[in-house]
Design a protein around this nucleic acid. Sequence first.
DNA 1: ACTGATATGTGCGCTACCGTACATACGCTT
DNA 2: AAGCGTATGTACGGTAGCGCACATATCAGT
Lengths: 242, 242
Amino acid sequence: MSIQHTPHQNHLLDALPAAEFARIQPHLELVKMPLGLALYESGGQLQHVYFPTTSIVSLLYVMADGASAEIAVVGNEGILGIALFMGGETTPSRAVVQSEGYGYRLKAQLMKDEFNRAGPVMRLLLRYTQALITQMAQTAVCNRHHSVEKQLCRWLLLSLDRLPGNELSMTQELIANMLGVRREGVTEAAGKLQREGLIEYSRGHILVLNRPGLEARVCECYQVVKTEFDRLLPSLHNSVID
Amino acid sequence: MSIQHTPHQNHLLDALPAAEFARIQPHLELVKMPLGLALYESGGQLQHVYFPTTSIVSLLYVMADGASAEIAVVGNEGILGIALFMGGETTPSRAVVQSEGYGYRLKAQLMKDEFNRAGPVMRLLLRYTQALITQMAQTAVCNRHHSVEKQLCRWLLLSLDRLPGNELSMTQELIANMLGVRREGVTEAAGKLQREGLIEYSRGHILVLNRPGLEARVCECYQVVKTEFDRLLPSLHNSVID
DNA sequence: ACTGATATGTGCGCTACCGTACATACGCTT
DNA sequence: AAGCGTATGTACGGTAGCGCACATATCAGT
């Protein structure tokens, strides 16, 4: 049983008017996105933009001493490589595949050309960028004020929203990297959630058993981000026939 | 001796081509920006965009329990109200005047019309927005990993870069609000910097005595942000004849 | 079944920061 | 010069998260 792939699995692509989609579609290239792949490195030139369908990608800042933190997460609702059309060509962040799967990519020049038509594609991408900005800002605040446990809940829910099903493949070590905390801190927080029956995990597989329970325990940051995505990109809401 | 005001004191306005500037200039309105004024509130409709000249404005997220954190700072290098042209009309952040002074404002609709010409104005604003994104992301990382003292240094330097002279008016209480830490934490860090002769302060006035000393002590976050602003907005560099 | 690699669990001392309470110092007003 | 409001200094116990060390558990391959 092979899984069917279509660009419509990405909500941004799916939200494009027919004419724009028809123009872009021939140039979309399906790519496998294995765990750990860096779609781009800090400061590197962007060759493509990526539209994840079944994968999740983290935007990470890595510091000189190796410490890192995730500033945003991008899945089937978004696009990677916004620096391309924002005019900067590159950015100081890294984009790393956090949950493997597939996505479509588009050559940098084609993306720029489409954007420069200053039509629906541009408007959609800018709205998405604003939603991404909100996510980054809320992450900054969450980093400052909230406990590891709350942040773990936020991270789980944000990831879950971007994947089908209620399972995700991710070791605690990797989650710790994303959150910028110790692995042991994640173990402790995850253990607590498991003891309370909200999640179940073993060796890199996390199953969410009680999503409302997680939502009851997460900080407000999750809801702020979700609400803002829904507000800015309402068209992405009902397109879930994958 | 009255101070002369001109829109060219704002680097974005100054960087506009003559034709664009001529079109916008008649609609610019000089406004005083007193300490504590909220240019816009979380979720509120934006009536104007603001171009600070001698003031500094903080983008703040305030949470349900009152805790807050600054996610970016905007001065004479930038603009407030990017949500307007990004398509969202509003944003979940607050913009609060942190250092009083002046700025110019432009009616929301005029700003949108200019942006929608999809010319130099748009390109400049998008580049600025990308620089702002970098600042927000780096703030998130800094919040996660760096000590209050390092963050204070970063904050002082970023503010100083946006003001003439080497002095700023700001109580430790307010700085604590920006950084999202206790006032006592700021007192301690500032006291240490003062004992080492890097700064001098009393009752809301901070004088930077040894800027290289601060730069030697700040975390990398400051330089990353500054470098990215310089890279994305090089034209703003030499326009310092106020 | 054995081995090695990887993932998770646990304990311990340490530090930065928090919350709180209160003391001191400065500047403005009268 | 006195008085008041605001800004800053200091102290103290409490705690979340860190760095480290090491124990245990699970999976993959031979």
